[in-house]
């Protein structure tokens, strides 16, 4: 029994336990903390496999960025207001556990019976050392062979930013008859003044909630357009 095996056993046991914790905890904050633990152990396994760079990235990107984002979201929202999301009835949920167990067994069979490939590629440990290390090796392959995929990944990130802004920003059209001005909502001002053509929404919301009648506009300065309720309007 080598030390390697001991380390592997410790890291993977901790990873799986934390993973079970993510699934089992009732409170999302506890789940998030368990996920941090799980990811740190995943990073340790990466390092054991000679992928130091990915180990570091796993901690920086996942634990440092994505999970902090999740925690911020949990703090920002009122969890009781979220609609519950479920795939099926309790019976289906039980069935899914059974399916999971079968899947795990299947993967086990696949792992045992698969034919392992030898070290047929160019990036043996010695070669990677000669290239200057794991980071250099990844960089050389990623930015030459996979240059196009790299560019497209950057587009995916761009779309992510656009999407987060489009959906995450508070509504620009705040209230009828109201022009909202606040820091961070610079476009709220002049847009509102251009009254669009009158119409009725497909959802039967009264038209006056959509279009401002010309000539009766008030300007309201508010810091939080979402919390603001115009006098005379029923509160949201």
């Amino acid at each position: 029994m080598s030390w390697e095996l001991v380390f592997f056993a410790v890291f993977s046991a901790a990873m799986l336990l934390c993973g079970l914790g993510v699934v089992a905890f009732e409170n999302p904050v506890h789940s998030a903390v368990a996920l941090v633990g799980s990811f740190i152990n995943v990073a340790a396994l990466f390092v054991m496999l000679g992928a130091e760079f990915l180990g570091v990235l796993q901690i920086i990107v996942y634990t440092g960025a994505v999970l902090v984002l999740v925690l911020f979201t949990i703090m920002l929202i009122d969890p009781t207001k979220l609609p519950e999301f479920y795939v099926g009835a309790p019976l289906q949920r039980f069935a899914s556990v059974v399916v999971g167990a079968i899947l795990l067994a299947e993967i086990g069979v696949a792992i045992i019976t698969r034919t392992a490939l030898e070290q047929i590629g160019p990036h043996t440990e010695a070669m990677v050392q000669q290239m200057g290390g794991n980071v250099q090796a990844i960089g050389q392959v990623m930015l030459s062979e996979y240059a196009l995929a790299f560019e497209i990944a950057s587009l995916v990130l761009t779309v992510g930013v656009v999407g987060a802004v489009v959906i995450g920003l508070p509504n620009r059209m705040v209230e009828p008859n109201t022009v909202t001005m606040s820091l961070g909502h610079t476009r709220g001002s002049s847009d509102m003044l251009a009254a669009g053509p009158k119409f009725e929404s497909p959802m039967n919301i009264p038209a006056e909630r959509y279009t401002a009648p010309v000539g009766e506009r008030t300007v309201v300065m508010t810091k939080d357009p979402d919390a603001y309720t115009h006098p005379g309007e029923t509160s949201k």
């Binding site: 992928a51 760079f53 990915l54 990235l57 796993q58 990107v61 996942y62 960025a65 994505v66 984002l69 999740v70 979201t73 392992a116 490939l117 030898e118 070290q119 047929i120 590629g121 160019p122 990036h123 043996t124 440990e125 070669m127 990677v128 794991n134 090796a137 990844i138 392959v141 990623m142 062979e145 996979y146 995929a149 790299f150 990944a153 950057s154 995916v156 990130l157 779309v159 992510g160 930013v161 999407g163 987060a164 959906i167 995450g168």
Partner: peptide
């Protein structure tokens, strides 16, 4: 196992994509 670094590069892309998706989903 196969001494090809492509798998690590693959996961790097998966990481980038997952980060972008998490921004959208949380929004």
């Amino acid at each position: 196992e196969t001494a090809t670094i492509n798998g690590q590069v693959f996961f790097l892309f998966a990481l980038a994509v997952a980060a972008a998706e998490s921004a959208v989903g949380l929004a």
